[in-house]
């Protein structure tokens, strides 16, 4: 659709604003994988309260907005094996790399961090090759 890019830009500004609040107020980098991972493996339990509050807002606010925002379709595959494999790859990968799309992508690139830029280039390349391979060659996704 034509207005998709406008909504993308507006949503992007909100995401950047979220990162700005987390940085300027709490002095932390808004990385979703780091915030979740620290709770899962115990490394971030000393800051558990703010992590849980962040995740609470992240999970619940879209649910609150959903009734006034009806055009949402997530198009998630029904193949639970694909989903489980993808989830494990995302979980292991983001913790090895110490960041994902929000931490390395949004927060890293915006401070011209070499690690963030390299990570972003690598996961986009890997993601692109994966989609091309599994969609156009195997026809799985």
């Amino acid at each position: 659709m034509e207005q998709d890019w406008i909504m993308g830009l507006i949503g992007g500004l909100l995401i950047g604003l979220a990162g700005a609040v987390y940085l300027l107020a709490n002095g932390r980098i808004m990385g979703a994988s780091g915030i979740i991972g620290g709770l899962v493996d115990g490394s971030g339990w000393s800051t558990a309260k703010e992590r849980i509050a962040f995740l609470g807002g992240l999970i619940l606010f879209p649910a609150v907005l959903l009734p006034i925002y009806t055009e949402v379709d997530t198009h998630l595959t029904n193949n639970l094996w694909v989903i489980a494999a993808a989830g494990i790859l995302v979980g292991v990968g983001t913790r090895f790399a110490n960041g994902c799309t929000s931490g390395h992508g949004v927060c890293g690139i915006s401070r011209l961090s070499l690690r963030g830029i390299v990570a972003t280039v690598m996961y986009i390349l890997a993601g692109g090759l994966t989609v091309v391979f599994f969609r156009h060659m195997l026809g799985v996704i």
Partner: peptide, 15 residues
């Protein structure tokens, strides 16, 4: 960093 980003990208693309 490189290995992790590649694994993450694969999962990201898959789902």
């Amino acid at each position: 960093l490189v290995l992790g980003s590649v694994l993450f990208g694969m999962g990201w693309g898959l789902a």
